[in-house]
Structure formats: structure tokens, C-alpha cells
């Protein structure tokens, strides 16, 4: 059906988007790679000599590098664990018949629409504050000493805050998947005498595994770049206790003005994200064919 002319028109229509995205990707990324080979500090004027892999060796031997990598993995892993398990349980609960289902759904989804800076500040001040926070009051009611979350368990606190933000996303997607499950299949298995556990493990789990994989992969992409929550709660501290890779690169480039080192760190972050991206792309690509 497509003629030569319409094909040419089609190409013309795609090209602005393609050219802009290509520029957006190649120019800055190319610059980052280039800077990562230079000794380049904004505080030290003068020429920026080529230093090969020096920035990379500095970055990998930086005493903050390994802690920040470990923190990144704990942050991503912790949030994934909480949101995926919580999301499955919540989706199963919300899928049951009940009164006011629509309202409960809205209540559960709402945190996803709260901007990261607001949710981090609200949790930090009104809940986790050891003097005036709600948690301190609850601890007090039970006769326990107040716990200073952000001072003594900064990473765990941030994991909690970020989980609260992403739990709705996992729930919503898993619930959507659950609702697309053929109810006749469930009824048939029930007639054949399958108990609730058998139905869950042999019918629901296989059906949900695809949606769960998508949830895990997409969340991982976003969670590798958690930034605002750390900036407004702990500034990466105390020490480096809650510094993740994104925050480390930010502090090296925009707080210490070390463009070369920050760029090397940025490239490391890109490589890390790409490892995850490959799996995600493969899944979505497969979906596109069907």
C-alpha cells in the first residue's frame, strides 16, 4: 500500500525526532567520554591536558567509590524486594471483591504522584524526626526510645521512602496484569480441586511473572538514578553512608568542580545502567513482534 512518495513523506516525518534524539544522545555523551580523559577542574583554570585513564583509576580508588556502589546495589535491591513482594500482595488484595474498591485503589496509587522532594521532606521531618516525628511518638507510646532514622540508618530510611514512592507503580502494573487473567481458567482449576495455594503458584505466578519482570527492570532503571531523595534528606551522609553512584558523581562534578573525575564516574554509571537496559530492551523487543 505504501507508495514511494508516502515512504519519503514518512521518513521526513520521523527525521526531526530522530535527529534531535541523536544529538541529545551523542553530543553530551561524547563530551562526557572526552572529558573523562582530561585533567579538567573548573577551579583550576588553564589548559586541560589529556591524561588517559587517570580519572578512571582515581574514581575506582576513591574511598567513596566502593561504599557508593554497595549503597547503590542495596538501595536498588532493597526497594525492589519491598515493592515487588508488597506489590504482589497488594495486587492480590485489591483484586478481591470489596466495597469501595475504586477509592482504595486511589489511596494506594496516590504516593506515585507525589514529587520526590516533597515525599522525602515529609518523611524526613514529619515522620522520621526523632523529636517531633510521628514515628518518635509511636515509639514513645510503646515506651521505646525514639530512633533517629536518618542519622543511624540513613540508607534504610531512604530505602523506605523510595519504596513508598514505587510501591504504587508495582501494585498498579501487577494489578493490571492480574485483571487480564482469564477467570474461566481459575474457575476450571477450582472445579478440578486446586486449592488457593495451588491456584496461586500454578496459575497466577506464571501469569504475573512477565509483569513482575517488567516492574523489576523498569524500576531498576529509575532506582539506579535516585537523587533528589538523598539530596534533601541526608546529602549522602553521614559520611558516605547514603551516597549512591549518582550522588557521588554529582558531588564530584558540581560540588568539587572536578569535571574529569565526574565524567569518568558518569561513564561508569552509564555502563552499569546499560547492563540492565539490555535485558529490558530484549523483553520489550520481543513484545513488539507479537
Amino acid at each position: 500500500m505504501a507508495t514511494q512518495a508516502s515512504r519519503a513523506a514518512g521518513r521526513l516525518m520521523i527525521s526531526p525526532a530522530v535527529i534531535l534524539l541523536l544529538m541529545w544522545m551523542i553530543v553530551p555523551l561524547g563530551m562526557t567520554i572526552y572529558f573523562s580523559f582530561l585533567r579538567y577542574n573548573l577551579l583550576i583554570p588553564g589548559e586541560n591536558p589529556f591524561v588517559g585513564l587517570e580519572n578512571y583509576s582515581y574514581f575506582f580508588t576513591d574511598p567513596n567509590f566502593w561504599p557508593s556502589l554497595v549503597n547503590t546495589l542495596f538501595l536498588v535491591g532493597g526497594v525492589l524486594l519491598i515493592t515487588t513482594v508488597g506489590g504482589v500482595l497488594l495486587a492480590l488484595l485489591l483484586d478481591q471483591p470489596m466495597w469501595g474498591q475504586g477509592i482504595v485503589r486511589i489511596l494506594v496509587i496516590a504516593p506515585f504522584f507525589v514529587m520526590p522532594t516533597v515525599s522525602a521532606l515529609v518523611w524526613k521531618n514529619m515522620f522520621m524526626n526523632p523529636v517531633n516525628g510521628v514515628f518518635a511518638w509511636i515509639a514513645n507510646v510503646f515506651g521505646l526510645p525514639a530512633f533517629d532514622f536518618l542519622a543511624h540508618a540513613p540508607l534504610l530510611s531512604i530505602i523506605l521512602i523510595v519504596s513508598w514512592q514505587w510501591l504504587p507503580f508495582a501494585t498498579l502494573i501487577l494489578l493490571t496484569a492480574l485483571q487480564s487473567l482469564d477467570s474461566e481458567q481459575l474457575e476450571a482449576s477450582e472445579m478440578d480441586g486446586a486449592g488457593p495455594l495451588a491456584r496461586f503458584f500454578y496459575i497466577m505466578v506464571p501469569h504475573l511473572s512477565r509483569a513482575a519482570t517488567v516492574v523489576i527492570l523498569i524500576q531498576t532503571i529509575f532506582l539506579l538514578s535516585v537523587f533528589a531523595e538523598i539530596l534533601v534528606t541526608t546529602n549522602g551522609g553521614p559520611g558516605n553512608a547514603s551516597t549512591n553512584l549518582t550522588y557521588l558523581v554529582y558531588s564530584q562534578s558540581l560540588l568539587q568542580y572536578d569535571v574529569g573525575l565526574g565524567s569518568a564516574g558518569g561513564i561508569v554509571a552509564v555502563i552499569l545502567a546499560n547492563i540492565v537496559a539490555i535485558f529490558l530492551m530484549r523483553m520489550i523487543g520481543k513484545n513488539l513482534e507479537t
Binding site: 553530551p28 537523587f227 553512584l245 565524567s263 558518569g266
Partner: peptide, 23 residues
């Protein structure tokens, strides 16, 4: 093209923070 466009979204923002800031 669609897959490639998607892949640009996988690029972590911090990887282009420095050049964007300087530009």
C-alpha cells in the same frame, strides 16, 4: 528506530550531567 529511541531513555541522567551543565 523505536528500540533505539527507547534505549536513549535508559541513559542515566548523571552520565550527561557535566556536559549539559557546561553547555
Amino acid at each position: 528506530i523505536l528500540m533505539w529511541m527507547l534505549s536513549t531513555k535508559m541513559l542515566p541522567a548523571v552520565g550527561v550531567l557535566v556536559p549539559i551543565y557546561l553547555i
